[in-house]
Design a protein around this nucleic acid. Structure first.
Lengths: 180, 180, 180, 180
DNA sequence: GCATAATCGAGACGGTACGTCACGTCTTAAA
DNA sequence: TTTAAGACGTGACGTACCGTCTCGATTATGC
């Protein structure tokens, strides 16, 4: 059900991904780095992307703590700040960006799952906010999360801009209150 | 200053990108498809990514019309709808997603430029809205655009969800009025 | 320890060498001709010259019989005649001349070994001659062989002259008896 | 009738030949080294070998002085010693060996001419020897020269052996007096 | 002294082969 | 049953020179 050195393989995979990006990540490299034969890797995962997908599932690097500051605004600001760090600060940046980027071309790497998993855990933030009366019951958590994460992604990754500390507050403010 | 068959080369590049994705796009393929020798391509562009970047700059496929519906809400809904189509409907989808995805790993493909170019042209929407009193002068167009485009990207690309017609209105509503 | 199709590879190598000379001999050509992939050849031999060197070692085409006519003069005349044929008559000529010629530029092709191997086997000729009293014990077989082979090489290869039957006797006579 | 910078071209040709061998000698390299456009070289010589052949004709590097020591033995020893140096001491070695080696594969480089030219000039040595009574009139100068030069070639080039000072005398002795 | 050849430079190109990398597959034998 | 060892076909990489072409610019020289 699992190769004997799965841990070493996953470690090597993420290490190489962070070090050399998705293109520089090679099955041969992982094999050598993890002290395993190339054929062993192919026996368990059909492709580089599948290997990476499996490695990511078990990777703690991409986890975010779910904050509880007492207010929705505070919670979201913390969340957005943490996500911003994930996208811009090494070594997480390399893994996160490479993995999400690779997901675009490789269906095996299910970026949707990443977002779904996180949303499931963050849901409690919104439940608390509704309970506190900070948010109407009709509000759509996924929409909020996607607006926030999307803006961070475009700024940090596509525009290549620095995500300054104040930006998190700005984004959260815009989403909570509207821009006009 | 430019290869004699630049047009054919760029056409072939985008055609192959759309057909096979960034990984399936090969310099040899472009050479054959465009009736040019491989060395000629390398004479002008140092890498696959650089070639693609050059091809994209001249590609009309990624252009969006700047709408003028008379209201900010209307303009943004049209813009978001068009961007959603770009991300989900072939053939533009294949080019746009592959190109933006590749940009993550290859600095030569300047996604920032894509967004900057578009923002420059969309700026008039916001100027008109300010003039009409629909938007405070202090509003930040880039923030608005990034919120909108980011949400579309995450939904359409990362979550792999269909972008239903109503979603554009929903997103624009959330950004303009806030979620609570 | 050895590629599975070594025989085919060596055959193709020598065939192409004979047909097109050293410059026309290409690794890709050998690969195709021998039904093997190019990379396989590179896996085993680092260069065209090394491949050829290996092929030559196992090639019977360059072998000469060691004659035993009963007299030194007779033995040497046969030897020289055979060497002359090697240098002038196809298909051996193409292999021998191309190979020895290539050896000049490529250290991997050890022409010295070719001559050393042959000298080792021809040594008995001189031992027999000494026993018969035809040659002083102090005579240097290598010098004799080099004088004979060298003259043939310059005549046949550098001067491009035909090596007429009588020439062998003439050369041997000169070396045995001196020219004055 | 001749390119304007013929001297520079020939110089560059021989310099590169000596430095990098026949294979490392490239038309593009000669063009750059001599400050001439590649097309200019092709306008005048159809191939690398032809260029080299032309350069060699005008090259003084391969000339040998014709000695006059007063005895045939002395003359030949000087000649052989000089030829040995030509074959073993840089930079002449590089040019001479590369050129003669290339001649094997490229008919344009007429090694025969090299030997014929030299023989013509050395003829006087043998005429003097005949006059002195050191050599019968029937002796064949070309045979003598080929025996001597051939032995040196095989030793120095094919066997890759050092040509020690005493070897010249040994070879000349063998040829003049015979080996038994 | 200047027209008119001859010569050249610049630059692009198709083409062949190079030597390399990593892919993914397979077989055989050991653990 | 799982793994190692190792050979292999395959596709593409990016590079080096090859030899050719066109088009202006530059030289000589010889009238």
């Amino acid at each position: 059900m699992a190769p004997r050195k799965q841990r070493e393989i996953f470690d090597a995979t993420l290490r190489l991904l962070a070090a050399k990006g998705f293109d520089g990540l090679t099955v041969e490299g992982v094999a050598e780095e993890s002290g395993v034969n190339k054929t062993t890797i192919y026996r368990w995962w059909p492709s580089k992307a599948a290997l990476l997908a499996a490695a990511l599932v078990e990777a703690p690097a991409l986890d975010l703590d779910v904050p509880d500051t007492g207010s929705l605004r505070g919670d979201l600001e913390e969340l957005v700040t943490a996500f911003g760090r994930l996208l811009t600060e090494p070594p997480a940046r390399d893994v996160a960006v490479a993995a999400l980027g690779a997901a675009i071309h490789h269906a095996e790497i299910d970026a949707g799952r990443f977002f779904a998993d996180r949303l499931a855990r963050e849901r409690v933030i919104f439940e608390r906010a509704v309970r506190r009366g900070e948010l109407p019951e009709s509000a759509d958590p996924m929409l909020i999360v996607d607006l926030l994460a999307g803006a961070m992604w475009i700024r940090g990754v596509f525009r290549g801009m620095e995500l300054k500390p104040g930006f998190a507050a700005e984004v959260v403010g815009a989403v909570l209150d509207g821009v006009r």
